[in-house]
Computed example of a mutant assay.
Amino acid sequence: MTDTVKHVTEGRDPTPVLRQAVQSAQRKLLLGSRDLADVNEALAGLFAEMAPCYDQLAATAHASPDGAVAAVLAALRGAFGHAARGLPEPAVNCVITAATVAIRLADDVALDREYVDSGRWR
C-alpha cells in the first residue's frame, strides 16, 4: 500500500462498524438454526464487515485493554475459536456476549434513541 492510498475507514471511529457487525451476527444466529454451518456463515459475515477496520479496532483494544472494544474482540476470538473446534453452541454464546458488551460502544445519543430508559442502567 502506498502513502497516497488510504483505507475507507481511516480517520473514522470504527466502533460503530464493530457494534453493527456483532449485532447483525447475533440476530442471524438467534433467528436461524444453530448448526455449525450457520454459525460459520454468521461469523464469516461478521469478519467481512470488520476486516476493513480491524487494525484500528485492534489498536484501540491495545490502547485500552480494559475497555469495551477489547472485551468485544476477546469474546469474538472465543466465538471463532469454538467454531474452529466444531462447537457451535459456545460460539453462539460468545457472539451473544460480544453483542451485549457492544452496547457499551454506542454514544449516549444512540443509547437514548435505542433504549428509552437507558439512564437507569448506567
Rank of each mutant, 00 (worst) to 15 (best):
residue 102 A to D: 00
residue 102 A to C: 04
residue 10 E to A: 14
residue 51 A to H: 12
residue 111 L to C: 12
residue 92 V to H: 08
residue 36 L to P: 06
residue 111 L to F: 07
residue 17 V to S: 07
residue 80 F to W: 13
residue 90 P to G: 14
residue 88 P to L: 10
residue 69 V to F: 04
residue 58 A to N: 12
residue 107 D to A: 08
residue 43 L to P: 10
residue 57 L to C: 04
residue 114 E to N: 14
residue 38 D to A: 12
residue 107 D to I: 00
residue 88 P to E: 13
residue 66 D to G: 08
residue 13 D to M: 05
residue 9 T to N: 14
residue 105 L to Y: 09
residue 58 A to K: 09
residue 4 T to F: 10
residue 70 A to I: 03
residue 56 Q to I: 00
residue 5 V to F: 13
residue 85 R to C: 01
residue 14 P to A: 11
residue 8 V to G: 08
residue 13 D to G: 00
residue 16 P to V: 04
residue 112 D to L: 10
residue 59 A to K: 13
residue 59 A to L: 04
residue 104 R to S: 13
residue 54 Y to P: 02
residue 107 D to S: 07
residue 99 A to H: 06
residue 4 T to N: 13
residue 119 G to I: 02
residue 9 T to D: 14
residue 116 V to P: 07
residue 113 R to D: 11
residue 31 L to C: 10
residue 1 M to Q: 07
residue 100 T to A: 13
residue 55 D to V: 13
residue 94 C to N: 15
residue 66 D to I: 00
residue 55 D to N: 12
residue 66 D to L: 14
residue 83 A to H: 09
residue 45 G to T: 04
residue 33 S to L: 11
residue 76 L to H: 05
residue 47 F to S: 15
residue 85 R to A: 14
residue 41 E to C: 02
residue 67 G to S: 10
residue 98 A to P: 03
residue 68 A to R: 08
residue 106 A to G: 07
residue 103 I to V: 13
residue 101 V to A: 12
residue 23 Q to Y: 03
residue 34 R to E: 11
residue 18 L to A: 07
residue 19 R to E: 10
residue 96 I to H: 05
residue 44 A to V: 00
residue 36 L to H: 11
